[in-house]
């Protein structure tokens, strides 16, 4: 564990707490201009469920196991909240990204490009590819509405920072322990790249007190 990865993981936790806070505070997932994509959240739940199939078999540390349990539980809780508790305020007409294509694409790629052709390994690879594109429905929704509430942009900023710090962590690990993981690296680079446009607007507008609005 290094500082980059620790802070990255903490930013990931922060993003989840921001999301839960926002949902509890507004008692809805669809306050004006602040929509959270159900598809993105459902994809994240799928990512954690397929990645942590080794939860009981592969013990790394108490930290690792606790985080895995938290990610699975919180993602399922968020999906539950959106699907049942705040269902009336979740507007599927804005959540129109074709998620089935990215699920299908990630599944097909996981079957072809993986480290070993076993059920667990393919599921793990699928989760890596799917995580890379899971934010797309949310970003697509943002593009469609053209603006976002500040708290939603903080959520995306925390998520983007978590991914960016993982890139730094991999460079650090390569030099310090000769750690190599091409599947994770390429998927991670793609995932971080998706945040570039968002980061640009976040830094130039939101941090200067302006509303998040697409040009």
């Amino acid at each position: 564990m290094n500082l980059f990865r620790l802070v990255a993981d903490l930013m990931h936790l922060v993003s989840i707490f921001i999301l839960l806070l926002k949902m509890q505070k507004t008692r809805s997932v669809a306050g004006r201009c602040s929509r959270i994509s159900f598809k993105t959240q459902a994809l994240y739940a799928t990512v954690f469920l397929t990645r942590y199939t080794d939860l009981f078999a592969n013990f790394q540390s108490l930290y690792n196991t606790t985080m895995k349990v938290f990610f699975i539980a919180s993602s399922l809780y968020i999906v539950f909240l959106m699907k049942f508790k705040f269902k009336a305020t979740n507007d599927p007409r804005l959540d129109t990204f074709k998620a089935q294509y990215v699920v299908g694409g990630a599944a097909a790629l996981a079957l072809i490009v993986n480290y070993a052709f076993t059920v667990q390994e393919v599921l793990w690879t699928f989760s890596i590819y799917l995580e890379a594109v899971a934010i797309l429905p949310q970003l697509f929704m943002l593009t469609k509405t053209g603006e976002a509430e500040v708290i939603t942009t903080h959520y995306l900023f925390a998520l983007g920072t978590y991914r960016g710090l993982y890139l730094v962590n991999w460079i650090y690990r390569y030099w310090t322990e000769y750690y190599v993981d091409w599947i994770v690296w390429i998927a991670g680079a793609v995932q971080t790249g998706l945040y570039c446009d968002f980061f640009y607007i976040y830094f130039t507008k939101v941090l200067k007190g302006a509303k998040f609005e697409l040009p």
């Binding site: 790394q60 993982y166 750690y179």
Partner: peptide
């Protein structure tokens, strides 16, 4: 020799 991926990351 590169270390095989260890799956110690989240």
């Amino acid at each position: 020799e590169p270390v095989k991926h260890k799956k110690d990351e989240l």
